[in-house]
């Protein structure tokens, strides 16, 4: 059997809310090591990769490897029935065609149980090559979200340029053009307010803001976002999930044809 217990249902809610507009259906791959998920959007431009380590759960048991095919809109409907502080348990027997989702309120006075139908999905796994990224930026996720939202009002496409002093987000649209630069700031008192740049060489790539906006929906997962870029390869936008794992998004760049 498979059983995974999370202290806070809100974590699962945040993960599903972060990806459900990008991905309709996805396999949760469960093993002794934990839960992973890899799914592309329907245009094959972006990919999200989730990794939740088994030791990040309150209780975790997985007797044999399982792929649980889920419709994320339906999972989201069930998660709406959970209180943020509820304990959430995912459970399935081997060969079952449903996933049992239970929510227990902190004082155990309210227990909800749902059976979500599983679906058969073709696993379309992509091999992601190990990449030594030439430029990496860690910055506050709320700052990233705001920049992407603000630039989306001006144009459809955003350039991201990492230099030694910081990162510059540029946009062009019918009304004109603009940019927002965020300077490296490693002296901020709180770690989550720091902007850190690690760079072997300057990198500039161009991306569709539509997808970056989808990624920014993961902001509630944590205070930090990490961008990793190399010339002419997809950017990685990673939201670390404290003590459990991460949610990563890969986005193919726009390129001159």
């Amino acid at each position: 059997m498979f059983e995974a217990k999370l202290n806070e249902a809100s974590l699962l809610k945040k993960i599903v809310e972060a990806i459900r507009e990008l991905v309709t259906d996805a396999n949760l791959d469960c093993s002794e090591a934990g839960i992973t998920m890899q799914a592309m959007d329907s245009s094959h431009v972006s990919l999200c990769a989730l990794n939740l380590r088994s030791d990040g759960f309150d209780h975790y048991r997985c007797d044999r490897n399982l792929s649980l095919g889920l419709n994320l809109a339906n999972l989201s409907k069930i998660l709406k029935c959970a209180g943020n502080n509820d304990v959430c348990t995912l459970r399935t027997e081997d060969d079952a065609d449903t996933l049992t989702v239970t929510f227990e309120s902190p004082k155990q006075e309210r227990i909800s149980e749902f059976e979500l139908k599983l679906i058969a999905l073709d696993a379309e796994h992509l091999g992601i090559p190990d990449t030594n990224y030439k430029a990496q930026v860690r910055m506050p996720s709320a700052e990233f979200q705001r920049i992407i939202r603000d630039l989306s009002v001006i144009g459809d496409t955003c350039s991201i340029a990492v230099g030694k002093d910081g990162v510059r987000f540029g946009v062009e649209g019918d009304l004109g053009s603009g940019s927002i630069s965020v300077k490296q700031n490693t002296a901020a008192e709180k770690e989550e307010e720091r902007v850190e740049v690690h760079m072997e060489e300057p990198v500039e790539l161009t991306f569709a803001l539509r997808y970056l906006n989808f990624f920014a929906k993961a902001t509630p997962l944590g205070p930090i976002v990490a961008l990793s870029m190399s010339p002419d390869v997809p950017v990685v936008v990673e939201f670390p999930i404290e003590t459990v794992g991460y949610l990563r998004f890969y986005l193919a760049p726009k390129i001159d044809e």
Binding site: V45, L47, G127, T157, P234, A252, P253, I255
Partner: peptide, 14 residues
């Protein structure tokens, strides 16, 4: 204007 590339250009099907 630059065009949108596909992930399949960079990542291979496992």
């Amino acid at each position: 204007m630059p065009g949108q590339s596909s992930l399949f250009t960079f990542f291979t099907k496992a």
